[in-house]
Design a protein around this nucleic acid. Structure first.
Lengths: 150, 150
DNA sequence: GTATTTTTGTTGCAAATACAACAAAAGTAA
DNA sequence: TTACTTTTGTTGTATTTGCAACAAAAATAC
């Protein structure tokens, strides 16, 4: 059994750790860059969807997003037709940080992919997307309280 | 720019979330399965090395391992020649849980790799190992307080 | 040898994380 | 319409996480 998931875990933790350290100087605390990027890329999303995009617990997302709002990186806007939801938008301050986050992420991407050919990168991306789609089904299933049988 | 790292982050969070939910019934709290697996596979390791294997902060590892010890899953043993280090070994209780963790991880692996051919799995594993080796250098660099320039 | 640096481990603290439980709006069924 | 279910959001609470700072042993430099 090839320990694919273990490699993925190591990579993800290492990267997240690096990003969190590097973004501290921009007053983004742990994890916040994840949410801010998604909100900048998908303005008008609701937090429930952002949590699904990132694969993080709803309540964790709620609190991170609340903090982003308190610190002026994003705003929550009421919806005309739906009183329940709050749409999320980056503020000017948020938009200004966005390219800094992108730059860091791009750099980490480049470091991670060092020594891989263009073709290998394509293949890796394709395979990872397929893995992600496979696993997100189970994630949603288990998160909803269902039990996997194996 | 292919968002490789984003896919990896999503997969890792989803998998970790699933595992944490599934291991609760065995009295393993969040993250503990990671440490227990490594200690079972590398008996006699010290916690500093376990942290490096997992790519997690030293102090986080210290506390998780302390808890594993308190709950009787592992023991810390003094070294003959080195008074500073404490070698880690699974107890009978720890050894008993190990195959349960492996079974879950193998199942998640299988779910994740559904639809991929044997050859694709080989390729993915190879590429991920290369990515991991690339990124762990930066992780260690940044963790030691150094600043990446980009 | 002594002095300095690195390794390994710990604890204090602040913050993030996530489960449980709740509430209210929206959607669906009857 | 009313009843039930799902969606979306919040808060209470317990736990994990990780940075800072410290201590002591070991390794290295001199």
């Amino acid at each position: 059994m090839k320990e694919i998931l273990r490699e993925i875990g190591m990579i993800a933790r290492a990267l997240d750790s690096i990003s969190n350290i590097e973004f501290k100087e921009y007053d983004l605390t742990r994890g916040q860059y994840l949410y801010l990027v998604r909100i900048c890329e998908n303005p008008g999303s609701i937090q429930e969807k952002v949590a699904e995009l990132i694969k993080v617990d709803r309540t964790t997302a709620a609190r991170s997003i609340k903090k982003l709002e308190m610190n002026g990186f994003i705003v929550k806007k009421e919806d005309e037709h739906n009183k329940k939801i709050k749409k999320l938008y980056p503020t000017e301050k948020g938009k200004k940080i966005f390219p800094i986050i992108k730059r860091e992420n791009d750099y980490s991407n480049a470091v991670a992919l060092d020594g891989l050919s263009e073709e290998e990168i394509e293949i890796l991306f394709d395979l990872l997307q397929r893995v992600r789609r496979n696993i997100e089904k189970d994630w949603e299933f288990v998160k909803k309280g269902n039990k996997r049988s194996y």
